[in-house]
Write a protein that binds this DNA or RNA. Structure first.
Lengths: 217, 217
DNA sequence: CCGCATCCTCATGGATACTG
DNA sequence: CAGTATCCATGAGGATGCGG
């Protein structure tokens, strides 16, 4: 008696876009895999260590089901297997950014020993800064746990690059909490500067993060 | 040895807005409960029949956890208990609309015997029609499984009302597939009219749904 | 009826070991 | 490195019970 290969996660059986979406990405870990892949293709073990806690059989299962559902594709590269989002899978960026923005207040309680990957912050920053523009364009680096995230603010909106080749002149060295505080507006530039070392011009940081958000009504 | 009352679903333990969001709404059924409540407060049994398949203990569990997480609140109304979204919970509308829009292509394969609630379509329509405006304003009703969904298109963007007191003059009587086809652009107004009865002016429908979408690149 | 709580079964998730 | 195999813990699904 051959084991039925656990073909599909239980469908909600509802004629509804949200329900059908959750049928294919609603299972545990799925959206976090997608979040990681939004920064670019990754290897199996990269994913496994980044997700920090996922069981290896689950990761394999999830990647298989994401692949059969057309969200992820395997790329046989020169250096082995790479997992990447398909173009349809990449369309999950908007829902994920919306979800991350909604969940940002939950980050205010701090790290609490949670795992952290610079990639997650690079993903979140453009969404958190959406609507903010700057003329002339501003460019600020955040050095954080050994990585460098460069945020660009100009009239086309915010962008973030992870470990780019080019280093900006203004770089704040801080921990994840501080950067999130700046982005969500619970921290002012001067509050951040009080405890974190900055290379370059403090006014660049002040211009990008001028004041706290008004309290949420 | 008293059972630990299954306080919290397993946290991902990641310092990331998406992960923290999924910590509180990522469990099975949670987002579908929120989707239903986006249309307004509901009773326990309304939710139970609408969700069609959820076990009653699970619904109770989920409502409790959503309540302790500040997403849902109980309202002791005149006619018993009502479950409603808190204002923070209502902020899930944007992520849900984005997710539903992303999942809309999955609806093209049709009903397939799936359950259906007019409320789900009323939720989805504004997101699916986003970007479409009409001057002068258009008002179209969809009569569908006994319910009436009225879509308004004007320069402030699309809206949808479920079973309003006012009846528009133009009403298409159709099944969910057809309405979704019109909204996602896989069906033209004339294709819909060919098989579905319309009260009122065909041109109103044609103006609102002028042609098929171009294929997604 | 409505709003749950309990009980039982089985599918799914999680941890660890092992292999091509 | 990229997974598979195995075993145990937990959560989902379904039926039923029960007080208000």
């Amino acid at each position: 008696m051959d084991k039925v290969k656990h073909v599909s996660s239980r469908s909600y059986g509802q004629f509804c876009g949200v329900a059908r979406a959750l049928d294919v990405v609603g299972d545990r870990w799925n959206l976090l895999i997608v979040r990681d892949l939004l920064c670019g293709p990754m290897r199996y073990n990269e994913l496994k260590t980044s997700l920090a806690g996922i069981a290896t059989n689950l990761l394999a299962d999830r990647l298989r089901s994401l692949e059969t559902n057309g969200i992820v594709e395997r790329q046989l590269g020169d250096a082995g297997v790479l997992y990447a989002l398909t173009s349809w899978g990449a369309g999950l960026r908007e829902p994920m950014e919306a979800l991350g923005t909604w969940g940002a207040p939950l980050l205010e309680r701090g790290r609490e020993g949670d795992a952290f990957q610079p990639r997650w912050l690079a993903n979140a920053l453009p969404a958190l800064l959406r609507g903010r523009t700057a003329t002339p364009p501003l460019e600020i680096g955040f050095e954080i746990e050994g990585a460098l995230i460069v945020v660009h603010l100009d009239k086309s909106g915010p962008r973030a690059d992870l470990n780019p080749t080019h280093r900006p002149t203004t770089i704040l060295t801080a921990d994840p909490d501080t950067v999130v505080g700046l982005a969500t507006g619970t921290l002012t530039a001067d509050q951040a500067l009080a405890t974190n070392p900055l290379q370059g011009d403090p006014n660049t940081l002040r211009k990008a993060f001028p004041h706290k958000h008004p309290p949420p009504q």
